[in-house]
Design a protein around this nucleic acid. Sequence first.
DNA 1: CGCGATTTTGATAATGTTCAACAGTAGTGG
DNA 2: CCACTACTGTTGAACATTATCAAAATCGCG
Lengths: 236, 236
Amino acid sequence: MAYLDRQTATHGDGLSESARSERAWSEFTASNRVKRLALTEHEAVFFEGDRAERLFEITDGAVMLYKLLPDGRRQVVEILGEGSLFGLQASDLYDCSAETLTPVRLRAIDRHDLEAIPDLLGHINQCLLGQLQTMHDHAVLLGRKSAFERVTSFLMRFVPKRGEVGCAGPAKDGPDEKVVVLAMTRQEIADYLGLTIETVSRVFSDLRRRGLIAAEKHDRVRILDICGLCKLTGTH
Amino acid sequence: MAYLDRQTATHGDGLSESARSERAWSEFTASNRVKRLALTEHEAVFFEGDRAERLFEITDGAVMLYKLLPDGRRQVVEILGEGSLFGLQASDLYDCSAETLTPVRLRAIDRHDLEAIPDLLGHINQCLLGQLQTMHDHAVLLGRKSAFERVTSFLMRFVPKRGEVGCAGPAKDGPDEKVVVLAMTRQEIADYLGLTIETVSRVFSDLRRRGLIAAEKHDRVRILDICGLCKLTGTH
DNA sequence: CGCGATTTTGATAATGTTCAACAGTAGTGG
DNA sequence: CCACTACTGTTGAACATTATCAAAATCGCG
C-alpha cells in the first residue's frame, strides 16, 4: 500500500498515473540508462546545493525534501510517496535535500537523457502539477492553521478517500477507525508542520485524552474517530 | 520591467524563458486558439472550484493565487509575474482562486488544445519547476521564519540579483538603494506572509525607524540599505 | 474640506516556544 | 534476564511572539 494514498490518488484523468509512468519509463528501462537503487530509512539521497545531475522516481517507500536555514532551522517542504518524482530542477543545483523516511526503492535517470524521451514529459508534468497543488495546501496549513489543525490535517493525509471533496463519511456499520503508520519522528513531523516537537507531542496527547486517537507505537497511531478528527483540520 | 525580477530570472538554461515561450506559443497564436485578455487591478480571473478549462500565461502584470478556509482565513499561495503560467491543474477543477494585483495582459488557451502542441510541454515544465522551487522557499518562510524575517524576505523579492547565491553586494560607489512597488495592500501582504495586517504594519514601521526603508507611498517603498535588509531575512 | 477606507499605533490576550525535568523505549553487554 | 545507557518522547512552568481588539492617524478622492 502506498505510504500516502492521498498523494498518489489526486491526479487522475482516465489512465492511472502508475500505468502512464510505466509506459513512459518502459523504453528507458530497456536502454539501461535507468539505474535502480535501494536505500534503508533515514539515508540521504542528495543535499541542497549538489549538482542536480539525476532525477528520481519512487518505486516504493517514502522520501522527504527539506531545506535548512544557516542557523539550523529546518523546514520539511515535501513528503513524497510511491510514484512521485523528485530531483528535477529548474537550475543545475538541487534546491533542497532529500532523505528517505522508510526503506525506499528508486529509479534514477540522468537529466540529460530526459530530452531524448519526450514521452516522459507528460508524466512529469502531471507529477509536478500534483506536487504544486499539494504545496498550495501546505502553504495554507503553514500560513493560516493552528497547531491543532496542522497535526490533525497531517493525520488525515494518511486516510485515503476521507476529508476530500466528496467524502463518503464513515461506514454505517462498525467504528470509524484506521491504523496509520507515520514513519516519521516527532522532530520530522514538527519540521514538516512548522512547529516544535513539544507542541506536536502536546497535540498528540490532547487528541489521545479526547479519545480521537490511540497510541499503538510512537510512529503508529490508531485513529478512533476519523470524522471527528477531520472536523478539527480547519478545512471543513 | 517585470513585476518580480527574481521570479522570472530564476530559471535559465541558455535560451531565455521568454524566448522559449514565444517560440512555443507562436504557432498557437497563429491558429487563433489563443485568446488574449486584458484586466485591470483586483479583478478575479477564476475561483477555486471552477472547472479548469483554460490556462493562462501572464504577458504583463502580476497575479496572485489564493485559497480560502471556510471560516474566511485566506492564504495567498503564489504571486506570479510576467512569463508565469497559471490555471493548469492536475484535476479538472481549479485548486485556488486567481486575482490580478496590477493591470494585467493574459494569453489564455483551452486545456484541450494543449495536447495538440507538444512544443509547449517543455516550457510548461520549466515554469512548473520554477514555481515549485519558489513554493519550497515560501514553505520555509511560512514554517520557520519570524515576522521580521518574513517581511524583509518579501521586500528582497523585489530586488533582482541581490540576496542570491552569488550576491555581488552593493555597488562600491553611491548608496545601496532601490525603490520598490509592492502593488499589494497590507491585507494581501499579510495573507501572503501568514501574518496579520497589524504585524506587517508594525514591521514596516520598525524598519523605517531603523533607517532601512523609507515610505514613498503605502505600496511604494524605498529600500535604503539593501545589504542591511538582506541580513534580516534569516536566509544568509 | 470632508468622507470612507486603509493604515498605523497602543494595550491586552492567546498561542506556541523555550528551557528543564522526567518517562518510556530500544539496544547493548555482562 | 536484567542493568545500564542513549535516545526519543512527554510534561510542566515561564517566557516571547504574534494575534486580537480598540482607537487614532493618514490617504485618496470627490
